[in-house]
Amino acid sequence: MTLPSVETFERAGLEAWPGITVQWDGNWVRRASGGYTKRANSAQCFDPADDADVDLRIISASSWLIVNGAKPVFRITPLSAPALNQALDQAGWVEIDKSHLYAMELGAHEPDAEGRSLSLLDPEFLAAQQKLQGHDDAMLVRMRALLAVMAVPACGIVVHRDGEAAAAGLMAISNGIVIAGNVITDPTRRRQGLGTAMMRTGLAWARDKGATIAALNVQADNPAGKALYQSLGYSHQYDYSYRIPGAPK
């Protein structure tokens, strides 16, 4: 099977991890979600040829993000217009969080005996995410608000050990592509196969729901995460990063 194009993956990601407030400007999209994750609080170009009035659109997108409670951030992918990158370079925007998109054809996976699939707003899933991610109550409120607007088939996964949440993540399906996110393991229980158990449980759920492709985002400086996903069959598809304004000179 040939895996989908960059645009197909990016549009699936747009649906699977939406913004609470969204505005399109041609083929540029702006998303704001109270500051929870850069992906849902950033601007992004979906067409390399959409490069008219780049400087003005950078200013407009930045102002829109600030007005909607987010910091100025651009998500840069292979779809970004070269003129956008050049303008950001000239304006002194810096690159952060170099990352990869990994994907694979979705085969059969065996769920963990102590894994559970829950609704995204289930108190058990939210409590597991808060505990394992180390979120304070304010951050949990932001996360919950974003999860509440997700309109695609999605679930939260929690794997237990000794009666406690030991690993968690979420799965969201768009156009047959299941995208994993918020993957986290109890730091005191690492190297016990819990991340693998959680992922397999979620991928089994997604296959049952009709997904045929699996994808996820992983930071370039996360060797443990990359090793985990490669062991499951994921492979590197393309790179992306974020740009933020540099410090004033």
Score class of each variant (00 low, 15 high):
46 F>L: 12
32 A>W: 02
187 P>Q: 11
193 G>Y: 02
175 N>A: 10
36 Y>I: 03
40 A>D: 11
125 F>D: 07
57 R>C: 12
142 R>T: 00
97 D>P: 05
118 L>W: 02
131 K>C: 12
14 L>K: 13
67 V>R: 14
120 L>V: 01
174 S>D: 13
194 L>N: 03
164 E>K: 15
86 Q>R: 11
74 F>E: 13
196 T>L: 08
20 I>R: 00
144 R>T: 00
71 K>F: 10
93 W>K: 10
242 Y>W: 14
217 N>P: 02
24 W>E: 13
48 P>S: 15
106 L>W: 00
142 R>K: 09
60 S>C: 10
183 V>K: 01
44 Q>R: 12
175 N>Q: 14
112 D>R: 00
208 D>K: 12
21 T>E: 12
197 A>Y: 01
105 E>N: 08
109 H>F: 05
139 M>E: 13
210 G>V: 01
116 R>E: 14
219 Q>A: 09
245 P>E: 10
125 F>I: 01
194 L>Y: 04
200 R>S: 07
223 P>N: 07
197 A>S: 06
37 T>Y: 02
179 I>K: 07
84 L>H: 09
98 K>Q: 15
46 F>P: 03
228 L>H: 00
175 N>K: 13
219 Q>K: 04
128 A>N: 09
201 T>K: 04
18 P>K: 06
84 L>E: 09
123 P>Y: 10
160 H>A: 09
235 S>F: 01
62 S>N: 05
153 P>G: 11
239 D>W: 08
109 H>L: 03
217 N>M: 10
245 P>M: 12
59 I>H: 14
161 R>S: 10
101 L>E: 09
3 L>M: 02
54 V>A: 14
103 A>S: 09
111 P>H: 08
188 T>H: 13
80 S>Q: 12
2 T>D: 15
